[in-house]
Structures are given as structure tokens and as C-alpha cells.
């Protein structure tokens, strides 16, 4: 689904690379997690996948290419807007808009120009059901999204992302601001979403990676140290650094 081929990335026009020669294939309809200590570049790589790094003007992919559905996404004929419609993203700090729950979920559709109420209604309900939030909020769709608890808000953000029906969902430490119970619910949701979406998740929690992901990539100082099935990484890592990290000797 996603082929990352020898990618180096720089935030300052190529003077220093924060990612160096990364190559990995991310399989379709599986959960892939990126782990590694802070500053290892895992979030940067994630943001390369939907070209969110475009917001930083001096950022460049300096070598290699990222192919999604066999298309180089940094090619000239790729529109970042169209790309992002197909690749949803969930952020570390849940960030629903200060609007109603309904408006939050419908946002992505509305900016695509969909105005018909019945289409929106159906899409909102589907997305909220998909995010296991429908039963909790169906009576207060018009209430402010900011009245929800943190876990609910994060699931609302996931619903907002799935409402536009992307192929891929990128998650940047989605549970780091949540308490354990809310985390469990979000993880449960991710496990369910795996059936319909390709999910790439960046996490600080190795337990979380081992619980929910099919494949795990370990990054260290901008390089991909090891990429394998989750079970392999956690039980039988090939690299010494990986073993040291997951056994808690550093990081």
C-alpha cells in the first residue's frame, strides 16, 4: 500500500537530514506502528505520508520517494489536497473544532462541497457508529464537541477522519493525552478499524504497539533500525538497539 523507498528528509532545505535513507513497505489493511525515542523522526515520517510537512516551507524530501497506491506523492502532478482527502490524520492532542459534534464530523464533507442534509446525516451517523461513539452522543449531536470527555473527543476526531472515507489513517500518538480507560477504548476502536483502513500509528508506548499493531518499525536518530512483524520485534529482535530499547535500557 505504502512504499517508502530510501527516503531522506530535511526541515532546512537539505542542510541536515532528520530522516536518513528510510525504506519500508506498509501493508494494506493492517496496523503498522512506528516506535522509537523522542526525536527519532517517527512523527516526521508520518507527516511525510500526507505531506503535512508542506506547511513548513523549508522542508524537503531530499532523496528517495514515497509511493502510495503506486504513485509518487511528491510528484508534480499530485495535489496535496486530493492526497489528504485519501489519507486521514489523527493528532496527538485531540483537536475537535469548537463547533457541535455533528458539525465536526460533517466538516470534511462540507469542505468538499456536500450540502445535502440527508447525505450528511447518513455519513455522520456512519462515522460515529464506526468510531463507537454513536450511542454516547446521538442525543446531543448539536452540543459543543468540547463538552465531551478527552477520550470521546479523540474518538470524535477519528470519526471526523473516517467520515471522508480515506484509504489510510495516520495516527500521531493518539492516546498520549488520554487516561488508561480512554486509551483502552481508542485501542479497541483501532483494532476494529483495521478491517477497513490501512493504519499507521506513531506511539511512545511499546505495550500499545505490541497490543494493536501487526507490524512495527523501530527508529533511532533518524534511521530505521528494524522493521518486522510485531511479534518478531518484541520477542526476537534482530538488532541489539531494538532489544535494548524495548527492554527499557534506554529511551
Amino acid at each position: 500500500m505504502i512504499q517508502i523507498d530510501n527516503v531522506s528528509f530535511s526541515y532546512d532545505l537539505g542542510k541536515t537530514n532528520v530522516l536518513r535513507n528510510i525504506s519500508l513497505d506498509i501493508p494494506e489493511k493492517k496496523v503498522t506502528s512506528f516506535i522509537g525515542p523522542s526525536g527519532c523522526g517517527k512523527s516526521t515520517l508520518l507527516r511525510c505520508l500526507n505531506r503535512m510537512n508542506d506547511l513548513v516551507e523549508t522542508s524537503r524530501v531530499t532523496t528517495g520517494e514515497i509511493r502510495i497506491m503506486d504513485k509518487n506523492i511528491n510528484a508534480k502532478d499530485v495535489d496535496a489536497i486530493e492526497l489528504r482527502k485519501n489519507i486521514g490524520m489523527v493528532f496527538q492532542k485531540y483537536n475537535p473544532f469548537p463547533k457541535s459534534i455533528y458539525d465536526n464530523v460533517a466538516y470534511g464533507l462540507r469542505i468538499q462541497g456536500i450540502k445535502k442534509k440527508d447525505i450528511l446525516d447518513a455519513a455522520v451517523e456512519k462515522a460515529l457508529r464506526g468510531a463507537a461513539l454513536w450511542d454516547e452522543v446521538k442525543d446531543r449531536l448539536k452540543d459543543s464537541a468540547l463538552g465531551l470527555s478527552g477520550g470521546q473527543q479523540q474518538r470524535l476526531c477519528i470519526a471526523r477522519t473516517t467520515a471522508v472515507q480515506p484509504k489510510i489513517i495516520l495516527m500521531d500518538e493518539p492516546c498520549s493525552a488520554l487516561d488508561p480507560i480512554a486509551t483502552a477504548k481508542v485501542e479497541e476502536l483501532i483494532t476494529e478499524l483495521r478491517n477497513d483502513y490501512t493504519i499507521v500509528i506513531v506511539t511512545h508506548s511499546m505495550q500499545q504497539a505490541s497490543r494493536i499493531s501487526d507490524k512495527t518499525a523501530f527508529f533511532y536518530l533518524g534511521e530505521l533500525i528494524e522493521y518486522a512483524d510485531t511479534d518478531t520485534i518484541f520477542q526476537n529482535p534482530a538488532q541489539k538497539q531494538t532489544e535494548d530499547y524495548i527492554s527499557g535500557r534506554f529511551g
Binding site: R84, N95, P96
Partner: peptide
């Protein structure tokens, strides 16, 4: 970011 990520 949220808006941009949704394809705005």
C-alpha cells in the same frame, strides 16, 4: 492542521 488533514 485538522482542517488541512481533512483535505481542506
Amino acid at each position: 492542521e485538522a482542517a488541512m488533514a481533512l483535505g481542506a
